[in-house]
Design a protein around this nucleic acid. Structure first.
Lengths: 178, 178
DNA sequence: GTCTATATATGGATAGAC
DNA sequence: GTCTATCCATATATAGAC
């Protein structure tokens, strides 16, 4: 059910997906859908919640590290992995502001975004680093859904997103891999 | 009228903006809006058309140059200038795929996108350059609307977007300014 | 849990008077 | 060109039977 919703959301946008379409997709009626979720917003929330929780874990883990580059490296790797493994969900995230904005305007989300940002850009970023960090967030969003990169498998996409993002943040590639 | 529509589109998304809202914004009724535009899609088209034409001009001009770096530099400068001077319009572009996709799936748009891409990434880009180019397109989109960069004036934003994009494309900053 | 049926609101779009 | 009034489709959501 959530899988069907995610699939439809990513193809038609959230507003462009009606409960009727979701119901048809899984072969039931609208009323059956409403039995599981009291309203549409809750479906949207349920679809994106797992990824947001994962982002929270990644962020908290990075904050336990010391040093700007270690923190940036950790949160970057976590986010890249997250978006690569949830390509279609990522497409949903940067669409339909009318529906998604309320979900991201919560104090918790604002705070999480601020923490991620500080991990990436450091405690007192200059304008150039600030811009780079914003560009990374947008770049990761579109990269997972761009037709130009559709042929890339997960590992290749992950590697190239990481190296390009490091370039923007002026991070040295880690010397060793575990 | 187009200004009102752009303002509403950027704040609520295209699907999230009804003709009633546009009519209210300029103080007339829906019927009056329909007198000027036969359907909603035409309003959307009219709002984004000037920017697309500008993109076409920038692209054609860059294609007249020789050498990959000169071409990339020219189209990059043109696009950065375009998005910086149309921040709210840019916000509209990466929202509501259900509405905007049909407009960008036209053969002309596909072809224009391909030309821009080739100007930026060069004729035979490797995976890393391909990824970088895609990230730039997404990065420029979100950068114009990110709250983190809201305080930047146009000149500062333009400069930082350019230098970060050059970094991704491995372009040397131009030696001289006219 | 799933159904049929329906309430209620709003969307885009049209007709025709002024 | 703008209005009032309305059509028609569809959206979210609910009521109540099985």
């Amino acid at each position: 059910m959530l899988a069907a919703a995610l699939d439809l959301f990513s193809r038609h946008g959230v507003s462009g997906t009606s409960l009727q379409m979701i119901a048809d997709e899984i072969g039931v009626t609208k009323a059956a859908v409403y039995h599981q979720f009291p309203c549409k917003d809750d479906i949207v929330h349920a679809v994106i919640a797992p990824a947001l929780e994962q982002l929270g874990r990644v962020t908290a883990e990075a904050e336990r590290l010391r040093g700007r580059s270690a923190r940036a490296e950790a949160v970057l790797a976590g986010i890249v992995d997250l978006v690569v493994r949830n390509r279609r969900l990522t497409a949903v995230m940067h669409s339909d502001p009318a529906i998604l904005d309320p979900l991201f305007r919560t104090p918790q989300m604002q705070e999480l975004e601020r923490r991620v940002f500080e991990l990436l850009a450091g405690p007192d970023p200059d304008a150039e680093a600030l811009t780079a960090t914003v560009m990374i967030s947008g770049g990761l969003m579109v990269a997972t859904t761009s037709p130009f990169l559709e042929g890339f498998d997960e590992d290749a996409l992950r590697a190239h997103l990481l190296s390009n993002a490091r370039r923007l943040l002026r991070l040295r590639p880690p010397a060793a891999r575990s």
